[in-house]
Design a protein around this nucleic acid. Structure first.
Length: 887
RNA sequence: GGGCGAUUAACUCAGUUGGGAGAGUGCAACCCUUACAAGGUUGAAGUCGCAGGUUCAAGCCCUGCAUCGCCCA
């Protein structure tokens, strides 16, 4: 005994900072621009620069880190590109609120000063989330950290805008868009969240212009009626076949509006007559386009009624609704109003009800871009995992609409379009223009809007690598290997990166897209501030350690299933970390040097067995990470470490380690212990980097970081670790030991009481195995006497277990409780007889015998035989014990 | 309205080509055995949402239904 002394328990807080600093100092996370090694690259989904780490980030980045650390261990040149985005609307909102608390508005201080303030706020808070990612252990290449608004990325944005403009893929148009009256900006369709709201459906009489009656139109938004420019009915609708009037009188106004016929109108809804408001409803807008209707905007960008609302001008849209309804009622034009549930769009940033609004905005024409993005997935150049998300991807891509990219805010990439005040010419170039190329005048005005943040995020996989320059980084790492992200931004981000990557790089941005679940609370509710059910990842890290937290996230990350985070689970995995720590602590007591060679000649059964199991778990870990089955990775490791290494191997190898079998065996076992512990740390490292690094550093003779270790599967002798014979022998031996323990437990025999046991068997191999490894059997089942024989009388006062095809008798002379043993045996028999019954049924089923494949029939036969033999043996013993009881 | 997912032990969840239902936690009993009581040994616990169908064989494939959740319109 010697070696390094480890503390009794593992203290993460002390270790984590030290390890992380060590990695940074050693430049472990840095990727080479050029390298002969196989490249592996991931770009981080950039979090908002002013945001804070939440559970979603924690899961997302833990999975990326597992992949990156694993690929490094496999010898790849790994780039994990980190960075943040500027989150235009969200960040602007925050700074505006701060201004408001000072009693000022952004308009008061002006654009330049405001943007200055936002940069200040970014500097102030911008490192928070980066530091939080570091606490999570993220092994990003921090030297390459990028921000969507830094100079290089801004140049990429400019280039993309200019090129798309020149290609006719970016256009300015008057179109119905989603307007947030609170943020005062246009939004993309995606940025609107629909929510079912209880409203009212108002049935309003629209008198026919020729006085021959009236139409009843149903609407949830009576305030928009001032913008009506037609009433539409379905041409098929029999109710309106014989209408002679061509116009209706628009109530509360002096306007007549035409009656039009359009098959869009749902005859089953209301009375089948639809008021058409092209300027304030997307569907109406399209009807308006088809029928060349006028679009009359009656609600201003601030949500206040405009001139078209007549006497209602100046009212808010909510107040206008109230008063208009009242006026209609007074004039007898409101037939009725019913309770009505309908979905209302809300701003995804501030939750204000969206106003569909006619507006002049910039759009990306997405159709041709989407076609290539669809094709890339169809052809498998990009794989979406789990596969079922591809359908959602196709669905959206096939129905994609033009993307409104202009935002009426100040924080973001300003749209690089100048208009000549004199001749109206638009100028869109890489360099800021000073004179109009058309008329030569120099009074140019730049568009005041900025671009959607997602416009810059869409370029992330190549803009972060230096595009539009042809950098080595791009050559080495584009296309990236894997993108890890949540499904909530599949459209916002993934789809748009696909379009931009294919268009500008002529190559997909990533080969694999792994889509993980959302993290929810214990009840499965989405975590949100308003519900108060948010668990702060940093609190979890502080209480349980990063490794326990990461292991929990990995263990929960089953494909296609949400993660329900519970602190009880994290605590459970903290126990696992501690178990590992203590296993290492025990190991270190025996390890005093490096053991470079395995001494197969002097190894015991447990040694050969654990090496074989090590090979197995290594294969499992590699396969599960390669296939993004992170929960399987965690499960395999957990079982191996706890149930095989700790529960069996360490216990079984103690005699050898304590020198009871001589120095040669002791050293052979130490070498195995060293090897298994070392390789296990490497296998665990991608999931729990800190504790593994800490233990690694204390391994005798080992230099450098675990990050530079070789993955066990890549070691020369890896294949030679497998030893199926030893696995089989060990299984039998463990069966015997468990048999004794079971009897001890069920018969309430004190663990400290030594017992005598006998294996009786007519199977040569089982007798040999039992005899060969009797030392292990005796130690682990606490026997002071153990015998193996081919036949003979069963000991009178003993309890029985069947192991393999052998009988195990545990002598309970003087302590046996016959009734209990009868009960025990009957229980086993009942279980077996149920099995035998089911299997017999199969075997007597002619259809099964003739149609099932031979190997299956054979398997069932042997199962039947096995169970039956076992049951017979129990029954024999039961008879004997009953006999003994009565005598 | 269209689409996707979920439903397996008290709880949280695995179950990858269909071939005798698993884990962790919790629970119960016993144990301070010299790495770990944040531990050890043992045990109990499931009509795999419901109803049909395909098949020799269904937790798994097909259809319908129910409940819950999400996305899109």
């Amino acid at each position: 005994m010697s070696g390094v002394e480890l503390d009794k328990g593992y203290d993460p807080s002390d270790v984590e900072k030290r390890c992380y600093d060590q990695w940074l100092n050693e430049n472990q996370f840095h990727a080479d621009d050029k390298s002969s090694k196989k490249p592996y690259s991931i770009v981080i989904p950039p979090p908002n620069v002013t945001g804070v780490l939440h559970m979603g980030h924690a899961l997302n980045n833990t999975l990326q880190d597992i992949l990156c650390r694993y690929r490094r261990l496999r010898g790849d040149n790994v780039l994990w590109m980190p960075g943040t985005d500027h989150a235009g609307i969200a960040t602007q909102n925050v700074v505006e609120k701060k201004l408001a608390s000072e009693g000022r508005s952004r308009h008061e201080i002006g654009r330049e000063a405001f943007v200055e303030r936002v940069w200040e706020w970014k500097e102030e808070s911008g490192n928070a989330i980066i530091n939080q990612l570091k606490r999570l252990g993220a092994s990003c290449d921090w030297e390459r950290e990028r921000f969507t608004m830094d100079e290089g990325l801004s140049r990429a944005v400019r280039k993309v805008f200019v090129e798309l403009y020149k290609q006719g893929l970016i256009v300015r148009d008057n179109y119905i868009i989603n307007w947030c009256p609170r943020c005062n900006t246009a939004l993309a369709d995606l940025e609107v969240e629909f929510e079912e709201k209880q409203g009212r459906l108002y049935h309003i009489k629209y008198p026919l212009a020729d006085g021959s009656g009236y139409f009843i139109v149903a609407t949830t938004r009576p305030e928009t009626m001032f913008g009506d420019t037609a009433v539409a009915v379905n041409p098929e609708d029999p109710r309106y076949q014989n209408i002679t009037a061509t116009h209706v009188k628009l109530p509360l106004t002096d306007r007549d509006i035409p009656i039009i016929r359009d098959s869009y109108v749902d005859m089953a809804f209301g009375t089948g007559a639809l008021k058409v408001t092209p300027a304030h409803d997307p569907n109406d807008f399209h009807i308006g386009q088809r029928h060349h209707l006028e679009s009359l905007k009656v609600i201003g960008d601030d949500g206040v009624m405009l001139e078209g609302a007549g006497t209602f001008q100046g009212l808010s849209r909510e107040e206008c609704r109230k008063q208009a309804v009242k006026a209609l009622e007074e004039q007898g034009l409101l037939e009725k109003s019913d309770e009505h549930a309908h979905s209302v769009g809300h701003c995804y940033r501030c939750k204000t009800a969206i106003e569909p609004n006619l507006s002049r905005q910039w759009f990306v024409k997405t159709k041709s871009l989407a076609e290539r993005a669809i094709k890339a997935v169809e052809e498998g150049r990009t794989r979406i995992i789990p596969e079922h998300w591809t359908k959602t991807y196709y669905e959206w891509m096939n129905n994609i609409r033009d993307w409104c990219i202009s935002r009426q805010i100040w924080w973001g990439h300003r749209i690089p379009v100048w208009t000549c005040d004199a001749c109206g010419q638009d100028i869109v170039e890489m360099e800021d223009p000073s004179v109009c190329p058309s008329c030569g005048k120099n009074e140019l005005t730049q568009d005041s809007d900025v671009l959607d943040t997602w416009f810059s995020s869409a370029l992330w996989p190549f803009s972060t690598m230096g595009w539009p320059d042809e950098t080595d980084l791009l050559k080495t790492f584009y296309p990236t290997s894997t993108l890890v992200t949540g499904f909530d931004i599949l459209f916002f981000w993934v789809a748009r990166m696909m379009m931009m990557g294919l268009h500008f790089m002529d190559e997909v941005p990533f080969k694999d897209v792994y889509i993980h679940a959302l993290v929810r609370d214990e009840e499965g509710q989405k975590m949100s501030k308003s519900k108060g059910n948010v668990i702060d990842p940093l609190t979890v890290i502080d209480s349980y350690g990063t490794d326990a937290f990461r292991f929990t996230l990995a263990a929960f990350a089953a494909q296609g299933r949400d993660v329900k985070m519970s602190l009880a689970r994290v605590e459970g995995y903290r126990h696992f970390i501690n178990k590992l720590w203590n296993a290492a602590r025990f190991s270190m007591m025996h390890l005093d040097k490096e053991y470079p060679e395995l001494d197969r000649e002097h190894m015991g059964l447990a040694d050969r067995w654990i090496l074989s199991r090590l090979k197995k778990v290594t294969d499992e870990v590699a396969a599960s990470i390669d296939g993004y089955h992170f929960n399987d990775t965690a499960t395999s490791l957990y079982r191996f470490v706890w149930n095989e290494f700790c529960d069996w191997y360490l216990e079984a190898s103690k005699p050898a380690l304590y020198g009871k079998n001589g120095d040669a065996c002791m050293n052979a076992s130490k070498a195995v212990l060293f090897r298994v512990l070392k390789d296990t740390l490497v296998l665990l490292h991608p999931v729990i980097p800190f504790v593994t690094e800490e233990i690694w550093g204390k391994l005798p003779g080992v230099r450098g970081s675990v990050m530079n270790a070789v993955f066990p599967a890549d070691l020369d002798d890896f294949g030679a670790l497998e030893d199926l014979d030893s696995e089989k022998d060990m299984e039998f031996v463990m069966g015997v030991i468990s048999g004794v323990r079971n009897i001890r437990g069920e018969m309430n025999i004190n663990p400290s009481q030594n017992l005598a046991a006998v294996i009786q068997s007519d199977v040569d191999s089982e007798r040999q195995t039992a005899w060969k490894f009797k030392d292990m059997i005796m130690v682990l089942s606490r026997l002071d006497s153990f015998d193996v024989r081919e036949d003979g009388e069963k000991p009178r006062s003993s309890a029985t277990a069947i192991v393999g095809e052998s009988s195990l008798y545990v002598n309970l002379e003087g302590v046996i409780d016959f009734d209990k043993e009868v009960e025990r045996l009957e229980k086993s028999i009942a279980k077996l007889s149920k099995d035998v019954e089911t299997i017999s049924k199969k075997l007597s089923n002619e259809a099964f015998m003739s149609k099932a494949p031979d190997d299956v029939v054979e398997k069932v036969r042997s199962q039947h035989q096995e169970s039956k033999d076992k049951m017979d043996k129990y029954q024999e013993n039961l008879a004997k014990i009953k006999e003994a009881r009565t005598s």
